Simulated assay, not measured.
Amino acid sequence: MSRFALLLGGPLLVTEALKERLEGFRLLAADSGARHALALGAVPELWLGDMDSSPPWLQRALKAPKEILPRAKDKTDGEALLERALALGAEEVLLLGGIGGRLDHTLAHLNLAFALAQEGLKVELTDGLTRAFPLLPGVHAFPLPPGTPFSLLPYPEATLGVEGARWNLPPTPLGATTLTLENEALGPIRVEVVEGRAVLYLF
């Protein structure tokens, strides 16, 4: 499987566990997301963007191949980088810095993640501490350790069910709700999306 980790501009907590997890992933960076490469001690194979948010010190410090995009464009640097990863044959995408920070970017990244999932890609967004997974209709299994906290969010409406949690839920139509916030895995969980789409959020 062709696996890509994309460094985006949102916050990212770099831990030893995250570094280990990135083994086997090809690393690409979008504009200021490249600053995370320094914390990871890694050099992306491509640094793409208009560089409007990458200060001179960062451009001096990180010796990665750069591709400069025009500032006047109809997509973010992150979306352009994602398109490049797809052109390179990505089958699994990890969006580092894809959640947290600016709400508009987080929501845009979630929408992009759903579009990728609809194309059959495996997608995850993380800030290094929390993780988010877009869920389309079907059954989704997650091998979580006992005690893992999670929320299951309709996005924006869905019929959802969950098994293997402290509070199981039979398939239930949900819209705007707090009913499925702050659950706890007893071990591996099974999420069923009957209709609509949802986000599994691990924290």
Rank of each mutant, 00 (worst) to 15 (best):
P146N: 06
A117M: 02
P11C: 02
K63G: 01
L6Q: 03
L22D: 08
L103G: 00
R190K: 15
L38M: 02
L48F: 06
D77K: 14
V123P: 05
G89E: 11
G147H: 13
L28F: 14
T148P: 00
E20G: 14
G100L: 11
A37E: 03
F4E: 06
F142W: 12
R197G: 01
L46H: 06
A132Y: 12
A61F: 03
I99Q: 11
T159S: 08
L144H: 03
A61D: 09
I189Q: 00
L46A: 15
L28Q: 02
L129I: 05
L8Q: 11
N168S: 12
S32D: 06
M1I: 10
K122H: 01
G9I: 04
P146R: 06
N183P: 03
G24V: 05
D104S: 15
L94K: 04
K66Y: 02
L125W: 05
A198K: 13
A34G: 01
V162D: 00
T177D: 06
E45Y: 01
F25A: 04
Y155E: 13
E92C: 09
G175Y: 07
P156S: 10
P44E: 07
R71P: 05
L152V: 08
G97I: 03
L181W: 08
F4Q: 13
A34I: 00
I99C: 11
A72N: 10
E119N: 13
L40D: 08
G97T: 10
L6K: 06
P143G: 10
L103S: 07
I99P: 03
G98S: 02
E16A: 15
L82I: 13
P170C: 01
G9D: 13
L96G: 05
T148C: 08
P134W: 10
I189R: 01
F4W: 15
L144C: 01
E67V: 13
V93P: 03
A17G: 09
L202N: 01
A132R: 09
L81V: 05
V123T: 06
R166L: 15
R166P: 04
P65A: 15
H109D: 09
V193P: 12
H36S: 00
H105I: 08
P137E: 09
P188C: 07
G9M: 04
V191C: 04
T15G: 09
E45N: 04
P65F: 07
